[in-house]
Simulated assay, not measured.
Amino acid sequence: MSSTESLQSFSSVWDNRSMWSNRSCPLEEEALRLPLAVLYSLIFLFGLLGNLLALWVFLFLHRRRNSVRVFLINVALADLVLLACLPFRVLYHALGNVWTLGPRMCRVVGNLFYMNMYVSITLLGLISLDRYLKIMGSHRGRRWLRGRSWSLVTCGLLWGLSVLMAVPMMALAEGNEEPGKCYQYKQRKHARGKAYFNLVMVAVFWLVFVVLLVSYGQIARRLLRASQDKPHLPNAARYARTARKSFVVPLLFTVCFVPYHAFRGFYVASQLQDISCETRRLMDRTNEAVLLLSALNSCLDPVMYFLLSGSVRRATLQALAQCLRLHAEPPATNSSTTELRRTSVSHASTTAVLDTSRCSLGNITTLRSQHTDLHPHSEPCVHRSGLSD
C-alpha cells in the first residue's frame, strides 16, 4: 500500500471514529433549543429594523461626509450581513438541531457570521482611534484625517482581507463534519490550522479592545479636564456629560464581546485534546450562551448611534415626524402644498444652520491647551464616543 493510500485510509478511519464519538456523546441540550430559536429571532428582527434605519439615515439624511460616517455605514452593512445568517440558525434549532442544507452551506453561513462579527469589531476600534487622533493628535495628522479618503481605503482593505481569509474556510472541508449537524462542538486535532486561526482572531479582538479602552479613556480624560479647568465656558457642562457618555461604547463592547473572547481560548484549547463527554457538553452550552451575546451587539449598535449622536437622533426624529405628519394629514391643495414645501425648505435651512453651529458626526476640533485662554463663545466642538453631541 502506498503512503498516499495509507494516509487516506487513516483519514477515513479517523472521520468514522470522530462521527461515532459525536453520536455516542450528544452535545445539544434539548431545553435550550426553543429559547435559542426565539432569542435569535428577536435579535434578527430588531437588528434588521435598526440597522436598515441607521443605514437610511447615514446614506440619505445625514449631511456630513466624513470618516466616521464611512465607518458607521460599514458597521451597519457588516451587522446586516451577520443578521442575514441568523435565520439559518433559527431554522436549525426549530427543526430539532438538524441541518438540512448540506455541509458546504453550513461552512458558508458560519464563516460569514464570524467574518462580519470581526469586521464590525475592527470598525468600532477604528472609530475610537479616529476620534482619539483627532482630539489628541498633531495638527498635520488632523489635516490628514479630516477627509474621508483614508477611511474609504481602510474599509476597502478590511473587507478585501476578510473575504480573502473567509473564502478558503468556506471552500475547504475540515473532515470532521457530522451529517445533519452544523452548530455544534467539534474536535480539531486533525484541523489544527483553523484552530490556530481562531486563536489569532481572539488576539486581534484583545488588541482592538485595548485600543478602544485607551482611546475613549483618553478622550474622556481630556473632556473632563476641559470642563473642570474652564467651568465658565457655555459648553463646560456638555464636555462633562460627553465624557461620561463616552464610556457607553466600551461598556457595550465589554458586555457583548468580552465574555465570548474570554471563553474562546479555553474552547479552542479543548478542541485540540481529548476531553470527556461532559466537558464537551459544558463547552458547547457555554459557547452557545456567549455567542448569543456577541450576536446581540448587531441590534445594539443602532441604539448606540441614536443615543450618542445628536445629529443622527435629530435626523431620525425629524424624518419619522415628517412621515407621521404626511400619513396623518389629508391630501393638500396646490396652494397648501406649495406652502408646505416652503415651510419644509425653511425648516431644513434652519436645521442646517443649527447643525453647522453644533457638533456634527465625525467633524471634530482639537481641544486647546490648558494654558490657552479660550473665548467664552469660541470653545471647540467636542464629540463623544466618535459620535456627535
Rank of each mutant, 00 (worst) to 15 (best):
L207P: 01
G141S: 14
R244H: 11
W206C: 08
W144G: 00
L133A: 10
L145H: 04
A321E: 09
S270C: 13
F209T: 02
E339V: 05
V163T: 02
C381S: 14
D15V: 13
N363R: 14
D79M: 09
L42K: 04
V268S: 00
G175N: 09
C359K: 07
Y40S: 07
N66W: 02
M19E: 10
R238K: 14
S162F: 02
N97W: 02
R65M: 08
S311G: 11
D130G: 01
S6T: 13
L224N: 07
A191V: 03
N287Y: 15
S215A: 15
F10A: 15
L158T: 03
D79T: 04
C256Y: 05
L272Y: 12
Q370G: 15
T343Y: 02
A31R: 13
N16H: 12
L32T: 02
T122D: 01
S120L: 08
M283S: 03
A315Q: 06
L129Q: 08
R384N: 10
D274I: 06
D389C: 10
F197P: 03
P168Y: 05
S6P: 00
Y92D: 00
L34S: 08
M165K: 08
A289N: 06
P231K: 08
T254M: 12
V248M: 13
R342F: 11
L158M: 09
R143F: 06
G141L: 13
A94E: 00
I275M: 08
L45E: 01
L52I: 07
L293P: 01
R146F: 12
R17T: 15
T316A: 14
V382I: 09
T316Q: 05
C323Q: 11
N198V: 02
M165E: 03
H93G: 00
C299V: 07
F88D: 01
S344H: 09
T316N: 04
L293C: 10
S151W: 05
S149G: 14
C256E: 01
T351M: 14
V303P: 01
R17V: 14
L223I: 01
S360P: 03
D301V: 10
F44L: 10
L292T: 05
H93E: 07
A332Y: 04
L387M: 14
A195W: 06
R63D: 07
S2H: 13
D130C: 11
G102N: 10
L34Y: 13
T337P: 00
E30H: 12
L324Q: 07
L123P: 03
N287D: 04
D301S: 10
Q184G: 09
E339N: 12
L80D: 02
M165Y: 02
P330Y: 05
G125E: 02
V210R: 06
D274S: 13
